[in-house]
Design a protein around this nucleic acid. Structure first.
Lengths: 198, 198
DNA sequence: GCGAATGCTTGCACCGAGTGCAACAGTCTG
DNA sequence: CAGACTGTTGCACTCGGTGCAAGCATTCGC
């Protein structure tokens, strides 16, 4: 066992460093020549590791861009569960999703990331795939807010509401990208949600 | 040029026959051993053609299952545009999407297809990808119903509503699959839509 | 501090999806 | 029948991704 909260042990530190190095290198290459045109071979070489090692750090090329959407999902879920008990499913979801509107540090801008999504179908695909996991992650809370018994068999309602909210998020981001980053993403998101709720 | 509406010419007929043969063979294999466990090699051999020829008929392995979602999308769009002018975006979409609830002929049941989706991420991925095309296909009509000027730059609303409706469809189908095909898909869909609309 | 267990890197061989190309066989037209 | 056209096929290749085993560094127990 390693110390989990102590100094992260040399191994852990180098691991994180390599991870960061790969991420930076890859994102730079993606931004320069496009996601699909960049091979794992190139990334590995540029990052100073072997092709094989790349796959020890990332399960797929897409995962470099996606980052840790798993952890992000948990953060949103926590924000969701922190919303007032009385708040409606939609309101709680909308506010919880706004916590995603974060700084965006790093040399590669959020706009460039959005551009990658725009011309790489496989990237969009894995992104949407992660959203399906979020559905299950948020479902318990949303079921409660909708007044659905937790064990209800095959009830599409909670998942539908969550999927709809995530669709609002994605269309808002896409619209923001199309605006060249000039529009306010939160406004776009709110507009999308309002339109969906009729 | 070939006659487009005449007797479809031998070539065209054999082409269709081979297409159908591949589809049947592939779906049977998928149902038997699973989508991912089935290789294109196997399908081609079982269908009596070469691996290379398979890719002359289908762009990808997934396309065999997806069928012609392009054409299906156009049919839904036509149904959408046929809805009364005065109908709201949501109502029109909901009713138009119900036209998808069709017979389902063929040796492989709709339930088996749904099962394939359930355990093949790449299949889900391409499916969702097609939905993005549908978004653009339905957008003009929905923008009109929402009272948005057609040329409006980067407005997420129409696409958000469409994506939300499609999400309802997908979650309804998924819930139907989980019920083992016992629940009524149309009821599930209506319930999902009602929940999303708050 | 030493040896052993552990973990990371790497090369290698392999698989499966998908593509470009060129040769070949069948069909259709003049 | 000759020539244009179209579909089939094999071949070689690219790329993402995985299993395996050898080698090297680190870490842990004594």
């Amino acid at each position: 066992m390693e110390p989990t909260s102590e100094t992260p042990s040399l191994r852990e530190r180098t691991r994180r460093a390599v991870h960061a190095e790969i991420t930076d290198t890859a994102l730079r290459l993606f931004a320069e020549q496009g996601f699909e045109a960049t091979t794992v071979e190139q990334i590995a070489t540029a990052a100073g590791i072997s092709r094989r090692s790349f796959f020890h750090y990332f399960r797929s090329k897409e995962d470099v861009v996606l980052g840790d959407l798993e952890a992000l999902g948990r953060r949103v879920r926590d924000a969701l569960e922190a919303r007032p008990e009385s708040e409606s499913a939609w309101d709680a979801l909308r506010e919880a999703l706004k916590t995603l509107h974060a700084p965006g540090s790093g040399a590669v801008t959020a706009l460039e990331i959005a551009d990658m999504y725009a011309d790489a179908p496989s990237l969009r695909a894995k992104h949407l795939e992660k959203h399906l996991r979020w559905q299950e992650l948020f479902a318990p809370d949303i079921e409660r807010r909708l007044g659905i018994a937790p064990g209800t068999t095959a009830d599409p309602r909670a998942r539908a509401v969550i999927a709809a909210a995530l669709a609002c998020l994605d269309t808002a981001v896409e619209a923001w990208r199309e605006s060249g980053g000039t529009a306010d993403p939160v406004d776009l998101f709110d507009a999308a949600v309002a339109a969906v709720r009729g």
